Amino acid sequence: MAPEQMAEGPESGVAPPAGSPQPTTGAPLPSGPPSPGSVPPPPPRPLDAIDQDILQMLQADGRASIRSVAERVHVSRANAYARINRLIDDGVIRGFGARVDHERAGQGTSAYITLQIVQNSWRTVREQLRQLPGASHIALVGGDFDVLLLVHTPDNRALREVVLTRLQAIPEVLSTRTLLVFEEEDLEPQG
């Protein structure tokens, strides 16, 4: 259920186009910590069972209509519309997108790459990792390494280019370790 659909009103039953990143206010969805001078999101508030059901339904089908969400969680369409907008405004829902089969999309090689980085360089490194071709997940973690990166590339040659040329050229990256993925599966939300 994309915000464009919600902008049509709570009575709309038309499925939206996939991948819409804008809330009904027209402002971009937050993509990380607030920038200097911006208004931070409100503090997290507890989600009730209906909010949890809405989230579970939208995770399974981000194109669900307001009508189908309302029927599934047993509330009015206006209530479902208001709850979804609140979840977007509160930053709980960050966007809508498609689940991609990377192999069928020409990205047949996947790898988790662990990085050890210079202390206190996370923000700098994160910005550079965001620019890597095929990067799909970045996490600052605790343990034997500092960063976990998931990349999808067309083949091993492209993966080698990412690791040996792009990653190891970042001055704050002290070492890397590449874990080739043989098979992967995104877990579907239980519904």
Rank of each mutant, 00 (worst) to 15 (best):
Q128W: 04
P21E: 13
A27C: 13
V181I: 02
A18K: 11
L159M: 00
G13Y: 08
E188C: 15
T176V: 04
L87T: 05
I66Y: 09
P154N: 02
A80S: 10
P28Q: 06
I113N: 09
P43V: 00
L47R: 12
V73W: 08
N120K: 13
G97D: 06
I84V: 06
H102C: 08
P23Y: 05
T178D: 03
V125Y: 12
A15M: 13
Q119W: 14
A80D: 07
Q52C: 04
T124D: 11
L47F: 02
T109N: 09
V147N: 01
R157A: 06
A18W: 14
I113D: 10
V92N: 09
E184H: 11
G142I: 07
G91M: 09
Q22S: 12
E161I: 01
L55H: 04
A18N: 15
R63N: 13
E11R: 14
P10Y: 08
M1K: 12
I138S: 08
D48W: 03
D90C: 01
Q116N: 09
L148Q: 04
F182K: 10
D89V: 05
G191K: 13
Q59L: 11
M1P: 14
F96S: 07
R94S: 11
S68Y: 09
L132E: 03
D101W: 06
S65C: 03
V173C: 03
R166S: 05
L174C: 11
S175C: 06
S76P: 04
V147W: 00
Y112W: 08
V92Y: 07
S65V: 03
V162N: 00
E188D: 13
V14D: 15
W122K: 12
T153N: 03
D144C: 05
I50R: 06
G95K: 02
V100D: 08
D61C: 02
H102S: 12
R99N: 10
S136F: 14
N79P: 15
F145Q: 07
E188G: 13
V151A: 01
I54D: 05
A105D: 08
H137R: 15
V125N: 11
D61P: 07
G32R: 13
V69N: 00
G97H: 03
G142K: 13
D61N: 10
L164E: 10
S20I: 10
V141K: 11
G95A: 00
D155S: 01
E172Q: 06
G95C: 01
L174A: 11
L187G: 12
E183V: 09
A105C: 01
A60F: 11
L149F: 02
P36C: 05
E11S: 15
S35Y: 10
F145M: 10
D186L: 14
P10C: 12
L179E: 13
E103L: 12
I84W: 06
A169C: 04
L29N: 14
R45V: 04
A18F: 09
R104H: 12
S121E: 10
E161M: 03
E4S: 14
V100F: 05
P154I: 01
G108L: 06
Q168Y: 04
T165W: 11
A135H: 02
V163Q: 13
R157F: 06
A139R: 11
S20N: 09
S76N: 08
D90H: 15
G19P: 04
N79K: 15
A27M: 07
P171H: 02
F145G: 06
L187V: 06
